[in-house]
């Protein structure tokens, strides 16, 4: 019993002291897509900051909302001014972790289950999604797709344009991270 306890203790201490292995990017991609019979809306941001700690299996994202580019400039202005209010809440952030037992060392794409907290428009919500990670040639590529509901984040859509904005917005994330300080 004593032996076991000590072992568990030692393990925990090792984990705590844990080596971190960070992969980071400053030009990740995030895009969101709203499809309705009346109008398709898309916006893409190529300045997503992301960091993945493959040793601790944790990750974080941060992006400036006014970095989203819309094909229509007026939409972009409305997005920032009326919907996400990027002057008040400039960033969207995510922190999360995965517990899947995966071996990135094999150079194969692995699928993970990520749980975390997404903060947008001043509202923090738990988010769970599947994601992939792929480590090749020292570059860690990650992708994730999820659906978000604007109303969950206190983003009001006026009745007049309700038909033009999907109630669930598809979000796609792609990151290509390089090891930090190497």
């Amino acid at each position: 019993m004593l032996k076991n306890t000590l072992l568990a203790l030692a393990l925990l201490v090792i984990c705590n002291a844990g080596r971190t292995q960070l992969y980071i990017t400053t030009n990740g991609f995030a895009g969101f897509y709203s499809k309705t019979p009346l109008e398709d809306i898309k916006a893409e941001n190529n300045q997503v900051f992301a960091v993945v700690d493959v040793a601790k299996k944790s990750l974080a994202f941060s992006m400036l909302l006014n970095g989203f580019v819309f094909p229509k400039e007026l939409m972009q202005e409305h997005f920032n001014e009326n919907y996400v209010e990027s002057d008040k809440y400039p960033k969207a952030t995510f922190t999360g972790a995965y517990t899947d037992d995966v071996d990135l060392g094999k150079g194969q794409e692995v699928t993970l289950h990520v749980n975390g907290t997404l903060t947008l428009h001043g509202v923090s919500k738990p988010v769970a999604t599947t994601a992939t990670l792929h480590l090749t040639g020292g570059v860690l590529t990650g992708t994730a797709s999820l659906q978000l509901v604007p109303a969950d984040f206190n983003i009001a859509i006026p009745g007049l344009v309700k038909e033009k904005i999907a109630s669930k917005i598809d979000v796609h994330i792609t990151i290509n991270c390089k090891p930090r300080n190497k």
Partner: peptide, 21 residues
């Protein structure tokens, strides 16, 4: 304590990004 540190790790990752942002 270890739980606390996992949490701290999450926010420190984010803080790292915010500094660079």
């Amino acid at each position: 304590i270890s739980l606390g540190q996992v949490k701290a790790q999450d926010s420190s990752l984010l803080k790292m990004l915010d500094d660079s942002i």
